[in-house]
């Protein structure tokens, strides 16, 4: 199996490989911005070249180590700054399998599906801002997540979504006078 295919099959290595590519592209671009200016002084391309180059080399090495060497951490690894052996005690999630059920009775696979649904819904809400306005779009997001994703009672979810929207409207729209976009429906605080 080629290294490239192995990287694609390993999430962590893929992330590092992508970062390495970004770093490489930035380093190359940096060279075009001018690494040094008159008198050999540092130019606008110096830091992009150095930081991009360092990112490319280190992330490239980490990506390769991820597929050829031992894996540094399993997905859902320890939090920032957590030493690996301590993290084994702290994050029971690390070794989660599909049988791992949380307090609401969801398996790991269901939770990951939900995660992507929430990402999609959030993206949808942002895109809807120009159409229905900020408050309506995100108020609807709260309602849809509570009912569809989290399977909470319809009425309770509606009350919570309405209360959250009302609170945000009060604090940001009225108190702070933030001109929240109203979209085509005009349900905002602009103007």
């Amino acid at each position: 199996m080629s290294t490239l295919i192995r990287i694609r099959g390993n999430g962590e290595a893929t992330v590092y490989a992508m970062l390495a590519l970004v770093g490489l592209a930035a380093a190359v671009s940096g060279a075009f911005y001018g690494v040094f200016v008159d008198g050999g002084r540092v130019g606008p391309g110096f830091l992009p070249l150095v930081a991009g180059g360092l990112t490319a080399v280190l992330c490239g090495w980490l990506a390769l180590r991820g597929v050829h060497g031992r894996r540094s951490h399993p997905p859902g690894g320890p939090a920032d700054g957590v030493e690996p052996h301590l993290a084994e005690d702290i994050n029971p999630v690390d070794d989660a399998t599909d049988d791992d059920v949380d307090i609401s009775g969801r398996t790991r696979r269901e939770r990951i599906h939900n995660l992507w649904k929430v990402f999609g819904l959030t993206l949808g809400a942002i895109l809807l801002v120009q159409v229905v306005g900020f408050l309506a779009a995100f108020g609807a997001l709260v309602f849809v997540i509570s009912t569809w994703i989290e399977r909470q009672p319809l009425l309770k979810s509606a009350v919570i979504a309405a209360a959250a929207t009302g609170l945000i409207y009060g604090v940001f729209g009225l108190f702070l006078e933030i001109p929240l976009p109203g979209g085509l429906l005009g349900l905002g605080t602009e103007g």
Binding site: T122, F138, L141, V142, E150, Q152, I160
Partner: peptide
């Protein structure tokens, strides 16, 4: 289940209010 949608709402509206910019 109720908390995180509200956290998302607050985060996005908070970010918008910094520069009033999508």
């Amino acid at each position: 289940a109720y908390l995180y949608p509200i956290i998302l709402f607050t985060s996005f509206v908070g970010a918008y209010s910094i520069d009033n910019n999508m």
